[in-house]
Simulated scan of single mutants.
Amino acid sequence: MRKRWRAGVVAVAALGLGLGAVVYTQGASAASWPSATSTVKVTASKPISGTVDGGLKRYVGSGALGSGSQDEGQDPLFVLADGAVLKNVIIGSPAADGIHCKGSCTIQNVWWENVGEDAATFKGGSGAKYTVTGGGAKSADDKVFQHNGGGTLTISNFQVSDFGKLYRSCGNCSTQYKRAVVVKNVTVTAPGKSIVGINTNYGDTATLSGITITGDSKKKISICDRFTGNKTGKEPTKTGSGPDGTYCKYTTANITYK
């Protein structure tokens, strides 16, 4: 679950990321996926600072970054500096390790057509604030969003389908934090394993509202799983699931099945 990144030497000005593109938005219901305006091959991790608008170009990785499998240690396509905003981007396959946020960041209207190792990894300190708004992710064999650093991640107006876990607070990182995740107005389409997983022994919290789940008549997708995390690299121990008012904060009224 622990990640590394190797910064590329490509300057932001050379990324092929245009400014002023039309923002693609969606509401709580699943929206149609956007069509790519063009395709860009990424051969080295691209550093992003300030606000960068991708103009709905599709970015695909190369073998130098990783295969887009579940192999650990793949490099990201994008590395966001503290305070960076990346918007209107489609990430194709292979996606390697997606996006890394080194501090607070905003990911807006980003669409993962086939999640690689992870869609995005959040690596800031205890005061970091991360925002994922709009967009969606498909075909994640394991995690979509991996929270390795501290701080709070807010996921809103997002859609996910065919996935393992939408969010996981790192269960075995060598440095652990108290983490928080807020998930609201998100559409989930089966198959999937769990929406969030948190570590209660570090004081993690998950707050969920406006969750719509489709194609899961037997309610196999777990809403909130609780674990005892560790710093040793061992697999964390699962201790429970469901709302408890302290760590997993939601009620049945916050979850709609269709």
Score class of each variant (00 low, 15 high):
1 M>H: 13
14 A>Y: 13
14 A>V: 09
19 L>R: 15
20 G>S: 10
23 V>T: 12
29 S>D: 15
30 A>N: 12
37 T>I: 02
44 A>K: 13
44 A>H: 06
51 T>R: 10
55 G>D: 04
58 R>G: 01
59 Y>Q: 03
60 V>H: 05
63 G>M: 12
65 L>F: 00
66 G>K: 13
74 Q>T: 01
76 P>R: 02
76 P>C: 02
86 L>M: 11
106 T>L: 12
106 T>I: 14
106 T>D: 14
110 V>D: 11
116 G>N: 06
119 A>E: 12
124 G>R: 13
126 S>K: 10
127 G>N: 13
127 G>H: 08
136 G>Q: 12
144 V>K: 14
145 F>A: 01
151 G>F: 12
153 L>Q: 06
153 L>I: 08
166 L>T: 09
169 S>L: 05
173 C>I: 09
174 S>N: 10
184 K>M: 02
184 K>T: 06
185 N>L: 08
186 V>L: 11
193 K>A: 07
197 G>K: 13
201 N>S: 12
205 T>A: 03
209 S>E: 04
210 G>M: 08
214 T>H: 15
219 K>N: 10
220 K>R: 15
222 S>K: 15
224 C>V: 02
225 D>P: 02
228 T>N: 13
229 G>A: 08
234 K>R: 15
237 T>I: 12
242 G>A: 01
248 C>T: 02
